[in-house]
């Protein structure tokens, strides 16, 4: 009667991850750039769309910014198989809790749920077959504020006060985010939705420039990054036509 869906799954014999076998040397599907930062109305979470295995581009339409419920998003970097499984567990866990306990799981509770899954996955992560380094962002209804958290592969959680990044392209965008937020024309937290979206497109374009495992914009194929916005009203997905228009008017110069 605790409303714990993961516990219910385990009672039925479910095991997350595949520990015990070393995956070192194998070409697992990994690599990415995901980022989240606070803007005027809430949090923006964005990610490129490339999935790679070693030198091979496996897929260029991946959605790495996953809507877990109406007010939370998990952006994934690492092994997609495990990351998507974690996202599915979280989605069901939050729904199951709400429906059994007749109240929303607290934001703190949602963070713990992800940390718990990462801890359960440590063996697979260390074996090299299931490392996931996610960002979790959402709107805390209790405190009426949007929040960003990032994790290491062992399940430690850290609050990204203004922004958080993860994935192979993250060193590039982390430096830019720090620069823009400290010495830019205006801090990230004061940006409008449009300014924040332009910033996200520019950041991911930079990451793609320096990281081969991050996919950039492909205008011919109509491929743009995934950008989601979280506000008090819930999660909104930026549609491709809006991204295309912003990219062409404010980003494409020099690309």
């Amino acid at each position: 009667m605790q409303g714990d869906f993961y516990q219910l799954l385990k009672e039925q014999g479910y095991v997350l991850g595949t520990p015990g076998h070393s995956g070192v040397g194998q070409s697992l599907t990994t690599a990415t750039t995901i980022l989240a930062f606070k803007y005027r109305d809430g949090v923006l979470v964005a990610g490129d769309r490339r999935a790679t295995a070693g030198n091979m581009v496996m897929y260029d339409r991946t959605d790495k910014v996953l809507e877990i419920d109406r007010h939370s998003v998990m952006a994934i970097a690492g092994v997609p198989a495990t990351a998507y499984e974690m996202a599915r567990i979280l989605e069901h866990s939050f729904k199951y809790y709400r429906r059994t306990q007749l109240q929303e799981l607290s934001f703190e509770g949602k963070l713990r749920a992800l940390a718990k899954l990462l801890k359960e996955n440590v063996a697979a992560a260390l074996a090299g077959t299931g490392a996931v380094v996610p960002i979790f962002a959402g709107y805390d209804a209790e405190q009426e504020v949007a929040k960003i958290y990032f994790y290491d592969i062992l399940g430690a959680e850290f609050e990204g006060v203004e922004y958080a990044v993860s994935g192979s392209g993250s060193p590039t965008v982390r430096g830019i985010l720090h620069y823009v937020n400290t010495w830019g024309e205006q801090p990230l937290g004061t940006m409008s939705q449009e300014q924040a979206t332009v910033q996200a497109l520019r950041l991911l374009t930079c990451a793609a420039e320096f990281d081969s495992a991050t996919g950039g914009v492909n205008r011919e194929a109509g491929l743009y990054p995934i950008v989601k916005l979280i506000t008090a009203a819930g999660v909104t997905v930026m549609e491709d036509p809006s991204l295309r228009s912003l990219f062409e008017s404010k980003v494409s110069k020099g690309v």
């Binding site: 009667m1 869906f5 219910l8 799954l9 599915r88 567990i89 069901h92 199951y96």
Partner: peptide, 13 residues
């Protein structure tokens, strides 16, 4: 209600 919730969510997952 709990039986239904458990069955539905495990099946859905």
């Amino acid at each position: 209600r709990f039986m239904l919730l458990e069955m539905a969510h495990v099946e859905g997952f």
